[in-house]
């Protein structure tokens, strides 16, 4: 069954880990925004600043890392997509 294929297993694991990180910074951080807002950095209330800018940059980083890892996996397993 394809479920045991190494390429697919690694793809799935990577997806799951990054998805977990995404849930953490999207939902857990937003849930505690009121508490985090009490910390002020450079005049920004941190909760506001994270949700307005910080989290967005992290999203970009997640996608960037995923693409990099997937390109490596593709090479390693000889996957050639068109």
């Amino acid at each position: 069954m394809p479920e045991n294929d190494a390429y697919w297993r690694q793809t799935r694991l990577l997806t799951l880990l990054l998805l977990g990180l995404w849930i953490l910074i999207t939902f857990v951080l937003a849930w505690f925004a009121q508490e985090i807002n009490r910390i002020v950095v450079f005049g920004f209330p941190l909760g506001f600043y994270m949700d307005a800018q910080g989290v967005l940059a992290l999203y970009l980083a997640i996608i960037w890392y995923y693409n990099r890892r997937m390109a490596q996996l593709d090479r390693h397993h000889g996957i050639d997509d068109e």
Binding site: L19, W22, A52, I62, I63, Y66
Partner: peptide
């Protein structure tokens, strides 16, 4: 709206 409309693209990328 800011988070929702950008965070969705992580799902698009991964899934």
């Amino acid at each position: 709206y800011v988070i929702g409309w950008t965070g969705g693209f992580v799902l698009v990328a991964l899934l």
